[in-house]
């Protein structure tokens, strides 16, 4: 089957490529971070959003952690697609009481440690320091069935991969695939997964 003949092939030229092509035509280069800025739709709950259920300090820490798990690269990062607001909502209306307690306690413990060295806590640390803190948390959580870090990871990945900017522009958006094509070359879709 020839994928390029398909109408959906048009969708496979991502917005990223389209912008890069336009930039080439204009004779300018665009750095990945600027590109990500261009790409981000700034949905509600991205930068500048206010939490409903978490405190501002919790919200900033959660956002900074989510961004280290899924950072902005040549594609949007967690903050770009509103993951902090999503986690705020999950915390307030979706986690069970015991899960809520685990989340709040885990967050408080990490932020308290960070405040010992950095006044503003986790969110004000340098990215390299943040990574090292998170690595420590990850290692300490490895043998646990459930932990704050498990929750954070799940909510970050869920919030990211089920968001509209990612579903439409990062993974392959194909809401009405038509007849099932059972075996196609991965290269024909550029090694990118379908939006689920």
């Amino acid at each position: 089957m020839n994928f390029s003949n398909d109408a959906a092939a048009a969708r496979l030229i991502s917005r990223r490529e389209a912008i890069q092509r336009a930039a080439l035509l204009l004779g300018v280069t665009i750095s990945p971070s600027i590109l990500a800025g261009v790409l981000q739709a700034q949905p509600a709950g991205g930068k500048g959003a206010k939490p409903t259920f978490l405190s501002t300090a919790q919200f900033d820490a959660v956002g900074a952690m989510a961004e280290r798990i899924i950072p902005r690269t040549d594609t949007p990062g967690a903050i770009d697609v509103g993951v902090p607001a999503f986690i705020d909502l999950m915390y307030g209306r979706y986690l069970a009481a015991d899960e809520q307690r685990m989340f709040a306690a885990g967050l408080a413990e990490i932020d308290a440690k960070c405040r010992a060295t950095t006044k503003g806590g986790f969110s004000q640390m340098e990215p390299a320091m943040q990574d090292s803190v998170l690595k420590g948390v990850a290692d300490a959580s490895k043998d646990k069935e459930k932990s704050f870090f498990h929750q954070l990871r799940e909510l970050t990945l869920l919030g990211y991969f089920t968001s509209e900017p990612v579903g439409k522009n990062v993974t392959h958006y194909d809401p009405i695939p038509g007849p099932f094509q059972a075996c196609i070359p991965l290269a024909s879709v550029g090694n990118v997964a379908w939006t689920r």
Partner: peptide, 24 residues
């Protein structure tokens, strides 16, 4: 799919993201 990344605690960051954008 990307949900494979939830239980995989070993790494995070740009490499995790790139891996999860590709099919597993």
């Amino acid at each position: 799919d990307w949900t494979r990344g939830i239980k995989e605690l070993n790494y995070f960051g740009s490499r995790l993201k790139a891996d999860l954008i590709a099919p597993g």
